[in-house]
């Protein structure tokens, strides 16, 4: 078999042997991966598998015990502000200040990111996410679905090249979850954004992610396209794969011992 051609895609985010210990327990164990421009990478695993720790390290909120983290070719810790200017984040578990109006919250973040013509940008994004009518609503009075879409407007404000989405469809009804997935995919394709995506909703992953990484006890146990992983594991769908990994900690005949790149 001829050797595969070298991967020439631009690497946006890279972790090399990332390890994070808490009181002697490894929440992440030599975790390595590359996220390329225009790619959506799903980070999956059961509760406690290490994906939140990974996300926190990648956001610079938690320092790794060892290993290297680079974004846009720059070491993350030393260039945190420069990198965050080109990135953004949205999580189902954070909120924008509830007593401010939606437009006020978005205007503040638009100014923080230095968005030119912020009002126009906010209006465009709100229209894209079909929430223009929420502009003058009090943020704390929005439904979960509305709140998620407002958070996504905030996440798209600075035209990020790298976006980290932490369970963006958690607590959404299937209709809104579907709309959110479609918008994320649409914007991602139009703007060629690299997205790191965590979710417990395997429908999300199959629909949105180009490639997924399964974590178990801080280690990568398998990696590939959703279709490849389903085929390799002789499972019917990604949810079955998830359950197998969560219960047995392994999936393939020879699970990867070291993190894949």
């Amino acid at each position: 078999m001829p050797p595969s051609p070298p991967d020439t895609r631009e690497v946006i985010l890279e972790a090399i042997d990332l390890t994070r210990e808490f009181d002697g327990v490894k929440a992440l164990d030599r975790f390595s991966f590359k996220l390329h421009r225009g790619e959506v990478l799903g980070l999956l695993g059961a509760n406690g598998a290490g994906k939140t720790t990974a996300m926190n390290c990648l956001l610079g909120l938690t320092l790794p015990s060892s290993g290297e983290l680079n974004a846009f070719g720059l070491p993350l810790q030393a260039n945190r502000i420069k990198i965050l200017q080109r990135a953004n984040f949205s999580s189902a578990y954070t909120a924008l200040p509830g007593n401010l109006l939606v437009w006020q919250n978005l205007l503040v973040f638009a100014r923080i990111y230095g968005v030119p013509n912020p009002k126009k940008k906010i209006a465009e994004l709100m229209e894209l996410l079909e929430i223009s009518h929420l502009s003058k609503r009090v943020t704390g009075q929005l439904s979960a679905g509305e709140s998620t879409r407002v958070n996504l407007v905030k996440a798209f404000l600075n035209d990020p090249e790298l976006l980290m989405l932490d369970e963006p469809t958690a607590s959404l009804d299937p209709d809104i979850a579907d709309k959110v997935r479609k918008v994320v995919r649409k914007v991602q394709r139009e703007r060629n954004i690299a997205i790191l995506y965590t979710s417990h909703n395997m429908r999300d992953i199959e629909e949105v992610c180009d490639r997924v990484i399964f974590l178990h006890k801080g280690k990568i146990v398998c990696e590939g396209t959703p279709a490849d992983i389903i085929a390799q594991s002789s499972s019917d769908n990604l949810e079955d794969v998830f359950i197998k990994i969560a219960r047995d900690g392994e999936l393939l005949d020879e699970p990867k011992k070291d993190s894949a790149v």
Binding site: L59, L61, L84, F89, T94, L96, I112
Partner: peptide, 11 residues
């Protein structure tokens, strides 16, 4: 307001 994380992950 659970906004701290939004601030810490902004530049």
């Amino acid at each position: 307001t659970r906004n701290l994380l939004n601030i810490f992950v902004a530049p």
